[in-house]
Design a protein around this nucleic acid. Structure first.
Lengths: 139, 139
DNA sequence: GTGATTGCAAATCTTTTGCACTAAA
DNA sequence: TTTAGTGCAAAAGATTTGCAATCAC
């Protein structure tokens, strides 16, 4: 049995439009790579190679710009697990991550699988934005 | 009332010796800045400025090397909260962090103040190394 | 003395930026 | 046509590395 997460072209396009992002050739190509299938984690460098391999010449600078625009639009979430390298997650739902330090592999943990029974109050004058749980694994 | 965490010179020196690190001028000076007082969070850049201000000329490269040696020796813990900047924490006990995104301020949360009631099992063939909880705050 | 440690400068790597060019509306 | 978006190359940070000089033992 195979689970497919294939999503049609027009749905991806619609998603861009809804975010107020003009569906340019490059944005569309990147969006299809990112949102056309199952949820995934990418680095800018990796997405760039992928795009180039897929005959979609995009500059690395544009990949960076696009990833940030998508993140700002709420289509992606930036994950910080590794000093000096940013990951972007297409899964924007509430969830956490396993991070394999040696391989750099990032794996989702469904939101329900981590239960934070107690959290301290935010320091005076601040409010909690998000809670990230990173389970660092090895082996 | 003031809580002091002053620690004597010879204790810091002993700590280096115990870690098998030769107590050189630079290592000792950095160790005193790091471990001579209360627990703290530093970036390489910040520690370097501090050292230079304290009349202890150390090169930035040596600060980086030293921070990593200390981390490897278990005297420090590296905290990743910000892509492209590493923080080092002198508190190596089990605990978590508030991170103020705008100011870059990092504040300890005592281990007991965060209760993880449930964690998923590590993926097959791996083991959990550490669990980091980062409470991102704003305002 | 001898091997570990340091400083410096250069290299590396990731990410951002400025600006002329191109494409979407 | 008009404005947003793109590519490129250069800049900006953070971190690392190579190697000769220096220091702890």
């Amino acid at each position: 049995m195979t689970i497919s997460c294939q999503r049609p072209y027009r749905e991806v396009l619609e998603r861009l439009r809804m975010s107020g992002l003009r569906p340019t050739r490059q944005r569309l190509a990147l969006a299809r790579l990112l949102f056309g299938g199952c949820d995934r984690h990418v680095t800018a460098e990796a997405l760039h190679s992928e795009a180039v391999s897929a005959e979609v010449p995009v500059s690395l600078a544009t990949v960076y710009n696009t990833l940030h625009q998508f993140t700002e639009a709420g289509l992606l979430r930036e994950i910080v697990v590794d000093a000096g390298r940013s990951y972007f997650d297409t899964n924007t739902a509430d969830h956490h991550h396993f991070f394999h330090e040696r391989t750099g592999l990032l794996v989702d943990i469904p939101g329900a699988d981590v239960v934070l029974a107690q959290l301290p109050p935010a320091p005076l004058g601040t409010k909690i934005n998000r809670v990230d749980v990173i389970v660092r694994i090895e082996g």
